[in-house]
Design a protein around this nucleic acid. Structure first.
Lengths: 215, 215
DNA sequence: AATTAAATTTAGACAAAGCTAAAAATTATA
DNA sequence: TATAATTTTTAGCTTTGTCTAAATTTAATT
């Protein structure tokens, strides 16, 4: 499997986890910052290899084979992210681009040994679940902070947006995985929140609250 | 720089360290298991980028820029080999192919953090020197076991051939980096050696002796 | 239902990196 | 030194993954 094929599978996998319906050519093109025509070409190729169910003009979904392959890529990506943060002391906003490269290294033995070396983590540094060697995922029920109401208290267990900018913002506000967050006030006008993080009180926009997972 | 360009630079670097003279197109082709015509194409490209000095029909050498780039690839390869052996518990005959992939990961920060994580090793699991972040290499004077004479004693500090087959042979004979080796007898007929490794006495061919470095 | 708009696919082109086969340059040999 | 052998390069083709522009299909709107 080529890097490019792997990237397409991964993108389809991620898009599927959001919408559930078949994925459109344009959605893939947009996410991968490429052209729809390139996507069409690749979908044909992946379909040839039985990695996706593709019907012209109707969108795609992953086959079982494709889904497993995608999960293995995600597994690698997230394990490498753990390695970078826990062993090499990277911060959580720096690891994505490097993991994008490392996820394509081909060696089952390597990834399973890495998994053991890291103590078989179930979540990456952003709170996303890590598929095991068989593709199984432990799902943690979690809610967006934006769904919470006044006086509720929760623990930050993940982020939806994993962009460097967003993560740096969270660092600045001292919000990290494990932080306790209490809703002090929910402003009805703009749906912004007044929250307590640790001892500090801060105000965050609804957009921010919509990208933080709480349990 | 593409993977392919990096592989060519690395190959030229390795060939240079053996012969010193300009490297021929065919020598590169043979080492890389590719065709001479493909090599010519790539040499033009590398020459364009000022990574090699290339004169048609006359062979190539690395420019300073090319040599530094090559050293950085070798640095990455050897640091990853250390990681695989020391942290992930791979044996020394398993790491080459995986390191061939890992050496192309692009992130200076990653490789320098990995270097620190490993305790800034100066040699890889085969006894080969690891260039530092500036490309400097600590050379250890070492000799081939085949050059040794009767009754001399030395420590195995490296191997010339790093193929899996050879390394597995050494494992079987319980020869490892750091093993003490004593020449008991040198057979003049076929230049084979009777040696003592630790407590055991074994006979090795000249070919084997010509691939073990001793200090 | 017809027409317009949007999404998707096809056709044809390009760059990278490889190949084969033929041509050219270099080296070796008679 | 002329010829043969070897090495190297060139020319042209292939594949992968991309692109643009045109054609087609589907969806939306009047």
């Amino acid at each position: 499997m080529t890097f490019s094929e792997e990237n397409y599978l991964k993108t389809i996998y991620h898009l599927t986890s959001v919408s559930d319906a078949d994925i459109s050519t344009n959605a893939i093109a947009e996410k991968m910052e490429t052209k729809a025509s390139s996507v069409t070409d690749m979908l044909k190729k992946l379909s040839e290899k039985d990695l996706v169910n593709y019907v012209k003009y109707q969108g795609v979904s992953l086959t079982d084979k494709g889904k497993l392959a995608a999960k293995m890529i995600v597994r690698k990506h997230r394990l490498w992210e753990c390695f970078l943060v826990e062993k090499l002391d990277f911060s959580w906003d720096e690891v994505h681009d490097i993991a994008e490269q490392l996820e394509h290294i081909k060696s089952e033995k390597l990834i399973n040994k890495l998994d053991d070396f890291l103590g078989n983590p179930t979540e990456d540094p952003h709170g996303d679940p890590i598929p095991d060697a068989n593709g199984r995922i432990i799902k943690v029920e979690k809610e967006l902070l934006s769904e919470f109401e006044k006086n509720q208290i929760g623990i930050c267990v993940g982020v939806k947006d994993t962009s460097s900018d967003f993560l740096k913002y969270l660092d600045k506000q001292e919000i990290a995985l494990g932080s306790q967050i209490e809703i002090i006030e929910k402003e009805s006008f703009d749906s912004s929140f007044r929250i307590r993080v640790g001892t500090k009180e801060i105000t965050i926009s609804n957009k921010i609250a919509s990208n933080i997972y709480i349990k």
